[in-house]
């Protein structure tokens, strides 16, 4: 079947035999955007998180047919080296990643959270950011989330504990 979807503001028309193919595989294998990761394939770890019409979605468990006509954003569309999204900037400043595998999913989940809650409390973070990091970078992520919130608003930057 033919499907039309928009990924990172670029329109794509794809031919796909199985309309239930996870969106993740279309993003990675057909559109060659490798930033979105496969972790569990069970909607459990969050490594595959992308935005669909602004909402965080686990793309390993999202049939591509549901993406028809929707706006998809992946980590590549969030920002790039020259123009990083405040979440990416905060991640760099707080030196969050260890192996890095889970990080695109966390950044996408965080960006979605900050769109809804501009200044999240630790409780908001605990409830909304439930991805899994095998390297246990949670402590630095929490700092980066607060830093990103500050970057996105006029709030003063929190004191970095890395400096």
């Amino acid at each position: 079947m033919t499907l039309a979807l928009t990924v990172n503001s670029t329109s794509h028309t794809i031919e796909i035999a199985d309309e239930n193919t996870p969106l993740l595989w279309v993003i990675r294998d057909m559109l060659e955007l490798k930033g979105t990761k496969f972790g569990c394939g069970k909607a459990a770890c969050g490594a595959c998180t992308v935005h669909v019409d602004g909402e965080a979605v686990r793309s390993c468990s999202y049939a591509v047919k549901f993406a028809e006509g929707k706006q998809i954003t992946t980590i590549e569309g969030l920002g790039d080296e020259k123009n990083p999204h405040p979440v990416q900037q905060a991640w760099i400043e707080e030196v969050v990643p260890q192996c890095g595998y889970c990080q695109p999913g966390f950044m996408m989940a965080t960006a979605a959270l900050l769109e809804k809650v501009s200044s999240p409390t630790d409780d908001d973070i605990d409830k909304n950011i439930i991805n899994v990091c095998r390297c246990a970078t949670y402590y630095r992520m929490r700092k980066a989330i607060h830093r990103a919130a500050a970057l996105m608003s006029s709030l003063p930057l929190p004191e970095s504990q890395n400096t």
């Binding site: 909607a43 909402e55 989940a109 959270l113 409830k127 909304n128 950011i129």
Partner: peptide
Amino acid sequence: FQAIKCTT
């Protein structure tokens, strides 16, 4: 919750 919904 705000950013992690059932529909995630």
